[in-house]
Nucleic acid binder design. Structure first.
Length: 260
DNA sequence: ATGACTCAGGAACTGAGA
């Protein structure tokens, strides 16, 4: 089973990119972030026509996540627990069932957190605490599980072209990285790092200042695997060529193959 | 160079992104 994640930066602007990439990469499950539309405005029919089931957690203007699957989608939950007053659409959990087994999949869009001296940074850290609590509970189930999405976290200096430029940024602050380590340390495997320890593996390049041309990128889109999923990991990769397409998202897809 | 570009919303610009 192939599972992928992609922050498309507006599904309306990126629908042809998505359909081209689906034909090319042939994923069974896709986690989308930053669809930037309300649920009813999502191009559901176009994607269902390609053989995918669809669940959407949308929001007016920004944020918004979705989950696509060629297999049945069950036990769908929209929104991360612990945020009764949180109206931002950043989280979908579901169970994908096949004839030979099932996998729990989360599509998440972790808050950016900038500027650091605003209320946005504590919101990010609190959201990460909620994700840690969620993960503790789900890991206790000892199931194959994949937490996929835009984490807005640069885990290590090997995950950024120019670390010095990011030292005071919400994506790279020591407190952010410590919180991410606390999450990963619950027992997750970073799928990309499980198959490739090379530097220069990026998933985002800013639109500004020729970042793509200079390969001035960062790795912030991650797929964290429970032990039961990591045991079945056969491959992982980043489709960086998608960033060179006309009118691209600033993020590119990340995918894994599971023997499941 | 705390800027460069690209979105949504809504009709000229601002807010958000990272």
């Amino acid at each position: 089973m192939r599972i992928a994640t992609w922050n498309v930066n507006s599904i309306k602007q990126r629908l042809t990119h998505l359909t081209s990439w689906l034909a090319e990469r042939q994923p069974d499950v896709v986690c989308l972030q930053e669809i930037k539309c309300v649920t009813d405005a999502f191009p559901r029919l176009e994607i269902e026509a390609l053989g995918y089931n669809v669940t959407v957690h949308g929001q007016k203007g920004f944020n918004g996540v979705a989950l696509l699957s060629k297999h049945p989608i069950d036990e769908v939950l929209h929104g991360l627990a612990g945020g009764d007053a949180d109206v931002q659409a950043r989280f979908i959990e579901a169970v994908i069932s096949t004839k030979i087994g099932s996998v729990r999949v989360v599509s998440l869009y972790l808050p950016n957190g900038n500027p650091v001296d605003s209320e946005k940074y504590p919101y990010k850290l609190k959201w990460m605490d909620r994700l840690i609590q969620f993960s503790r509970e789900r890991l206790a189930l000892e199931e194959p599980m994949v937490l996929a999405g835009d984490y807005n976290v640069i885990p290590t200096p090997e995950d950024v072209h120019n670390p010095a430029a990011w030292v005071n940024d919400a994506l790279f602050l020591p407190q952010t990285r410590a919180k991410y380590r606390e999450l990963a340390g619950l027992g997750f495997t970073d799928a990309i790092r499980a198959v490739n320890d090379a530097p220069g593996l990026y998933t985002f390049w800013d639109y500004q200042a020729g970042a793509w041309q200079k390969d001035n990128g960062i790795r912030i889109d991650h797929m964290l695997l429970s032990p039961q999923a990591a045991d079945r990991l056969t491959d992982a990769g980043i489709d960086r060529h998608v960033r060179s397409w006309e009118k691209p998202s600033d993020h590119v897809p990340v995918y894994i193959d599971l023997d499941l």
